[in-house]
């Protein structure tokens, strides 16, 4: 009991002593300064929070703005040409005849052909990096190389295609006895196929690496070979992820402009076969928008842009949905 009283006295003395020292006074002054500073901080904090919200909102406004702009600018064409525009087979701006079917066909043909050509390769890369050799210098090399494929500018693909692929395809066409032009759907698809490999490959790789090892081990323990494990465990498990990767590749191929523009031949006619020349939505816009001075002409090209926008948005959204469902499981 006595000691506690003593303690209390000491503490009290301590406090009173501390209060009167000059150091304490300085501390108090410093404290006041600190409080003033803090008031400024609070204001800055509110400004910062508000800025963040405004910028978050700006993204929504930007995307909605892009869509509305495309829609509004397409109205003259929608009014003048109606929905039949998309099924019209003739494109002749001089005579004011606009039909977008050749471009739709060109886009779909090049994209799906490219996809078909690239899938074996991108899946092979995905399996190679995801299952056979996930680590090591060889894997690193391949991974980086495939990433670099996506880094090369598309205008360079186009130029290379123009200088190298077109002559090759031309002599190939000559040897099988069809009109040898070199330009056309097939050449575009070849270039596109190379360009879209990385998208399906990298997504596929990360999906394959997410396959739980106990599933694979269960199959191995039953005596399955490596190929059987891949075919009956890994591929079914990652099916939706691989599909999403293909969708991303497709979205990329549909919107690709420069490389295709440079090798497709740019003829506004319905392609007869995969070797004929043609035009895609993106390449006709690239070629003609700058000089389309007539209202409906201009608007018709923008309407193509709107179609391209909507199609890629839908494809990408489906892809993202599939991925997020896959990763949440």
């Amino acid at each position: 009991m006595e000691t506690s009283v003593e303690n209390e006295l000491i503490t009290r003395n301590d406090i009173s002593l501390r209060v009167i020292t000059s150091e304490k006074i300085r501390d108090i002054v410093k404290g006041i300064k600190r409080v003033k500073r803090s008031h400024r901080q609070i204001r800055a904090e509110n400004v910062f929070r508000r800025t963040l919200v405004i910028i978050g909102l700006a993204m929504v406004v930007l995307v909605v703005g892009i869509m509305l702009t495309l829609i509004v600018q397409s109205i003259p064409s929608l009014k003048a040409l109606g929905i039949g525009y998309l099924w019209g087979q003739t494109w002749d701006p001089v005579r004011d005849v606009y039909g977008a079917l050749p471009f739709l066909a060109g886009t779909l043909l090049t994209s799906f052909l490219a996809l078909a050509l690239s899938i074996p390769f991108s899946f092979a890369v995905a399996i190679f990096l995801g299952e056979y050799y996930p680590k090591g210098w060889l894997a690193n090399l391949l991974k980086n190389t495939v990433e670099l494929i996506a880094a090369v500018p598309s205008v360079i693909y186009g130029f290379w295609g123009l200088a190298v692929l077109v002559p090759i395809v031309r002599s190939m066409e000559a040897s099988i006895g069809i009109p040898s032009i070199g330009y056309g759907i097939f050449t575009s698809s070849l270039i596109l196929a190379v360009m879209v490999i990385p998208y399906a490959a990298s997504l596929g790789r990360s999906m394959i690496q997410m396959v739980p090892s106990n599933l694979k081990e269960a199959a191995y323990s039953l005596g399955a070979t490596r190929w059987e494990v891949i075919r009956s465990v890994i591929l079914p498990y990652t099916r939706s992820g691989l599909f999403a990767g293909v969708l991303l590749s497709l979205g990329r191929a549909l919107g690709e402009t420069m490389a295709v523009t440079m090798v497709i031949g740019n003829t506004p006619l319905m392609p007869k076969n995969i070797f004929s020349t043609g035009n895609t939505m993106a390449s006709v816009i690239a070629n003609e928008l700058g000089e389309a001075d007539k209202m409906v002409y201009n608007s018709a090209l923008i309407e193509l842009g709107l179609v391209l926008f909507l199609v890629t948005v839908v494809i990408n959204m489906i892809g993202k949905k599939v991925i997020s469902r896959f990763t949440n499981e």
Binding site: V63, I285, G305
Partner: peptide, 17 residues
């Protein structure tokens, strides 16, 4: 969602806008 959409928009469409 908007950023996701923006990521997939073809560059030519951005050019148009």
């Amino acid at each position: 969602l908007s950023v996701d959409i923006l990521q997939g928009v073809p560059s030519i469409v951005i050019g148009i806008v």
